[in-house]
Design a protein around this nucleic acid. Structure first.
Lengths: 221, 221
DNA sequence: CGTTTAATTGAAAACCGTCAAAGTGCGTGG
DNA sequence: CCACGCACTTTGACGGTTTTCAATTAAACG
């Protein structure tokens, strides 16, 4: 992307290893090269809610630039390869890197807004469908992905924790979607049906983005 | 606050008037002096989901600094008085104003995260309770509010649209809460019971904030 | 291969939504 | 000042979606 790629530390995380824990001071943000991760919260009764999913190409997490610490834990869903982007450098000489990170933060913000709408006002079936289509779209944007096929390394429990459902119900909904031909997730392979490839546009993060105001951006000089 | 208060335009909005519509270019952000507003989205079947509530003292909306336009409509819940903060000025000479707005954006971001956790993993009763306590806490922070009493100008339909519920169910939950003595909302007056005043701490936005990293902030010079 | 983890299925129950009707409060105008 | 209209609140009966509990099957992993 646009963040300078010289002198970057490469780092690996194994499956289920934490990239950050609650309250950890963060001196870097990660740019994900390979693998998936998620941010989550555990509620008092022990259940988990995933509040963000990080894919290759994503920053994890842009808001560390502002907060300087992790408000919620981040865990690797698969083995990961990331590059470390030191925040000190960015503080010292703000430039395009700041714009990239703030742009990514705005995207994450809009994605959260869309997710609130889904959780509050959409059925389980619509949420599953929308989530899988979003994953496909995001993978397609950064990476080379077939138009109607991609790999989703999430368990049904992971998806349930994103979708605010139980794993059992996710399973039933996936069966329904498979039967109705819209979307098929068999094993880790997601296949999109012919007609259902275009639909369920999100309210905010789906628009072709103009992230930073064209004239006189504040963060550049 | 810390945004310069000289040369500010004052503006009024009447109840149910839009502060912004989808896609509107935004050359200002509003600092709310009086009244409440909310951001919302309408789903295809016509139902509404509120994704943010703006109280006196809040900025509406910090992310306009980055996006330059409104991704979702904002509507006044009550008659409002606001001051306009022109973004051009901030672009021209970034300073404390940028830090204030980015700090507010981070708070809004964390608030959204907490709300995803509520919608995904908490019961209707817990959501109502948590929402009312959050409103009380936020009112208490900026304004002079009694420790156990405040005014909530929302209809039960408004609350339902925040909480991802129906107005009928909100009504029943409020009755339950009143009976169990925890929280009482009669008319527009919210009263907190003796023992239930401290509880349900949010995962992120509840912590005593250190918003901007203490050393070498990027947005200042 | 055996062991663990994940996926699948069924039956029953809980939670919340829908529909419908009646009650309450409040502002406007006569 | 009272009557009316309108918006909001409250209540009941019923239905649907999702959860819970439990058991079985399938897949992944050493």
């Amino acid at each position: 992307m646009t963040i300078e790629t010289s002198n970057l530390h490469i780092r690996h995380f194994s499956k289920h290893e934490h990239l950050a824990r609650v309250g950890d001071p963060q001196r870097v943000v990660y740019k994900i090269q390979e693998g998936w991760a998620c941010r989550y919260s555990i509620v008092p009764d022990g259940r988990r809610q995933i509040t963000a999913v990080y894919l290759p190409g994503d920053f994890c997490e842009p808001q560390w630039l502002l907060a300087g610490k992790a408000q919620l834990p981040i865990i690797a869903i698969t083995p990961m390869t990331v590059t470390e982007i030191p925040l000190e450098n960015i503080y010292a000489q703000p430039g395009k890197a700041v714009q990239d990170l703030l742009g990514a933060m705005l995207k994450a913000f809009n994605r959260q807004t869309d997710w609130i709408v889904s959780l509050g006002r959409k059925s389980a079936k619509a949420r599953v469908q929308e989530f899988l289509l979003e994953l496909h779209r995001r993978l397609h944007a950064s990476d080379a992905v077939s138009v109607h096929r991609c790999t989703i390394p999430l368990t049904q429990q992971d998806m349930a924790d994103v979708l605010g459902l139980t794993a059992v119900h996710v399973n039933r909904v996936l069966k329904d979607l498979r039967k109705s031909g819209a979307i098929s997730l068999r094993g880790k392979t997601l296949s999109l049906g012919h007609n259902e490839r275009v639909q369920t546009e999100p309210a905010t993060s789906g628009a072709p983005h103009m992230l930073i105001r064209p004239a006189r951006e504040p963060m550049l000089a």
